[in-house]
Write a protein that binds this DNA or RNA. Structure first.
Lengths: 219, 219
DNA sequence: GTCTATACTACGATAGAC
DNA sequence: GTCTATCGTAGTATAGAC
């Protein structure tokens, strides 16, 4: 990809495959999802990665930045799936169906995603006030994802395909039906009486959301 | 209530009105809602109450018990409102409407409730594993609240008034539409473009949930 | 019932050797 | 790029005076 990179290396084989950085993000993602920002100590992260605590600071400026990078990676994975689904041609209702299917697939693929996202949405005050540049990037990413759905809702209403619902309230209902559901973990599994992420239950959740749209939204 | 208690006290006027215990619960409720269990230090609680850190331990065995008592009070307030609404006579769909209205009123009345509840549902692993007797009480309380709704859903389906929806998935959708919505804080307010708890927006949320039931559930 | 004092552990973060 | 050592702070919790 990068033509300036020399073909033969001089020293220090860069350890192709997951470097420390990715491994740290993997571990941190799982831990932050389970216990939140304040509930995770960098020592635990380092131990699970197999590094000393101090080595983490070589890869990330501080704990907040690590958390935000984890969040950004999650948002990236979701965006990767949702964007093409929303953009594909077709009437609004179909694009919405496909977009939410893509969202659900993304949430189901990485079990930590929904929890991190829910925390990101709900936990305003869990961090030191200023988040630096990464914080803005996270907010922008979220706004983009929301914008895609909101635009479709607006479009469908304008075309007369949807009822004149409140767009913000519909957004909240959809977020609840998707992000909350897959973030509900053990509680959700108790309710369902089985795993949340089995192929069956993921399909049932898609059906539930689809029914929500078709019964509640279609004109 | 307790006949063994003497009618006239010997000393130490018991400071009728909100004693320290209630004040601690109030402060802790607000803080835990904002930053979660691990994100709150007992020092901050004590400072805001106007006590020394150590004095908290005179009222609560430890931090976990304080958290659970906060949660129990929240659950009690919700139960207080929902139980009579669900029990009142009428066809299932009306009782469901009234029950969810009562839930929304309860969530809107104390802004911390929804967040604490959402955390309670979603944050399994945020605490030391064993929660003692209060933990069981919390779980039982939640199960009771859920049971009321689930029972109504089942009843409505049996009577042919509701479509044959998946009860657990419908529960998840309803929890998302109520608890998640009122827990969404600043994010939700950005989405709505105004306060989440204004009389107007609370009413709109009730309408949204009602529409969810009537379009998605009614046969 | 609240206080001061204290024990012990963990935290995030930095410095500097290798 | 990882390590050891260390800094300063704050965490939960206990003991005991008042």
């Amino acid at each position: 990809m990068d033509p300036s990179r020399p073909t033969a290396r001089t020293s220090k084989p860069p350890l192709e495959g997951p470097g420390s950085r990715e491994k740290i993000l993997d571990v941190a993602e799982a831990l932050f999802a389970r216990r939140g920002f304040a509930g995770v100590g960098l020592r635990e992260v380092a131990d699970q990665v197999g590094l000393g605590k101090s080595s983490l600071f070589h890869h990330f400026r501080n704990k907040v930045q690590l958390y935000l990078e984890v969040l950004l990676r999650v948002l990236g994975r979701i965006d990767e799936r949702m964007r093409p689904a929303l953009a594909a041609p077709g009437p609004p209702i179909e694009r919405l169906d496909r977009g939410l299917d893509a969202l659900i697939d993304a949430l189901a693929e990485h079990p930590a995603s929904a929890r991190l996202l829910l925390r990101g949405l709900v936990e305003d005050e869990a961090f030191p006030a200023d988040l630096g540049p990464e914080g803005d990037t996270v907010e922008r990413r979220i706004a983009e994802l929301l914008g895609g759905i909101q635009g479709l809702l607006r479009e469908g209403i304008e075309q007369g395909a949807f009822r004149r619902v409140s767009i913000p309230h519909t957004m909240q209902t959809l977020i609840g039906a998707t992000v909350y559901h897959f973030a509900s973990g053990e509680f959700g599994e108790d309710l369902l009486g089985g795993p949340l992420l089995s192929a069956d239950e993921v399909r049932r959740r898609k059906d539930e959301v689809r029914a929500l749209l078709h019964h509640g939204l279609a004109a």
